[in-house]
Structures are given as structure tokens and as C-alpha cells.
């Protein structure tokens, strides 16, 4: 099966939902099928935010993620909430600032939030930085397609900043490991 499931989990305001949509749209641009889902209602307000993307080369049956291949955690709350659900074979990318001492060895740690701050002055681009990391860590999507998808999704006046954030995210991989 060529189905891949990715979850980006973080805090409200980090651009997590947008990042998920960009990833799904990039998958479509590269000729694959994709679904994207997010959390609605009270859960989506305030603290936690979540974006699930399923990518497949064939038609997708069940559209929700239920067997994650990759989990990106960008906040303390997300870590507490989603870490216990994981299978052993789920890869995990964790933001440096919220990685507790007990973070298992299988997790890779990157300063995603700090990078977003340095690029944009805030946390809004955190999700896009995470996409850069994801692109380098896993081969779901090629870099140019992802750049194209970012450009198409974000508002014109934030396009350059978001593309910078994407490059910065890609640049984190290798620099730390």
C-alpha cells in the first residue's frame, strides 16, 4: 500500500491547518490523491490545533488518519495529547522547545518554533517551517512542488516570508543531525 498518513499537531496560531492544506495540495500537484482533515468545535479554539493529511497514489478509501506514518509535534499540549497514541513505527518530529527529557530516541528534534520566530517575528509560519523539515526528513513530496503549493495557498503579501520559512525549515535538517 502506498498510503501515507501525516499529522501536524500544535497550538492555535501556528498555521498548522494551513500547513496541512499546503501538504495535501502539494501531493495533488504531484499527481497523487490526498485528504485533509482538521479538528472543529471547541477543541480547535485556544490551545490545541491539528491537521491530518492522507496521501496515496490510488483513490483514498477511508479519508481520516488512523495509522500515522509521521507525527509532527509543535507544542507541549500536543505532545501530551498525541504521544501516547503512537505505534512504535510512527516517526516523530518534535519541536525543541517542547521536547521533554523523556522524548524517545526515535523522535527527531528541531528548533521549529524558534526558526519561525527568527524568520517571521512570530509563530504564524511555524507550520510552514515544519513542512520544510518534513520535506527533508521524508520523501512524501519534492521541494519544488512544495514551494509551488506554499505560493498558491498563502496570501500574496506573505508569500516571500512563507517561502523563506519553508527554506529555513528545509535548512534545519542536516544542520542539527
Amino acid at each position: 500500500m502506498s498510503r501515507s498518513e501525516i499529522r501536524i499537531a500544535g497550538a492555535g496560531g501556528q498555521g498548522v491547518v494551513t500547513a496541512g492544506r499546503i501538504l495535501a495540495e502539494a501531493a495533488i500537484l504531484s499527481g497523487k490523491t490526498a485528504t485533509h482533515s482538521q479538528v472543529y468545535g471547541p477543541q480547535s479554539r485556544g490551545g490545541a490545533s491539528r491537521s491530518d493529511v492522507v496521501i496515496d497514489t490510488a483513490e483514498i478509501g477511508f479519508p481520516l488518519a488512523y495509522n500515522l506514518d509521521l507525527l509532527i509535534i509543535l507544542s507541549d499540549e500536543a505532545y501530551t495529547k498525541y504521544r501516547p497514541e503512537l505505534d512504535d513505527d510512527t516517526r516523530m518530529i518534535v519541536d525543541r522547545d517542547c521536547a521533554p527529557d523523556s522524548t524517545p530516541g526515535s523522535a527527531t528534534i528541531f528548533p521549529v518554533v524558534a526558526t519561525a520566530r527568527s524568520v517571521s517575528g512570530g509563530v504564524l509560519a511555524t507550520g510552514v517551517v515544519a513542512l520544510g523539515v518534513l520535506q527533508q526528513v521524508a520523501d512524501f513530496i519534492d521541494a519544488d512542488t512544495l514551494r509551488q503549493a506554499v505560493g498558491a495557498r498563502v496570501p500574496a503579501k506573505f508569500k516571500a516570508m512563507n517561502l523563506d520559512a519553508l527554506e529555513a525549515g528545509m535548512g534545519l535538517v542536516g544542520a542539527t543531525t
Partner: peptide
């Protein structure tokens, strides 16, 4: 249902 309504798909 809610899933079909809220899910984005290609």
C-alpha cells in the same frame, strides 16, 4: 456526516 462535510479531498 460530519467527516464528509469537513474533510478536504482531491
Amino acid at each position: 456526516d460530519e467527516i464528509v462535510g469537513h474533510t478536504r479531498e482531491s
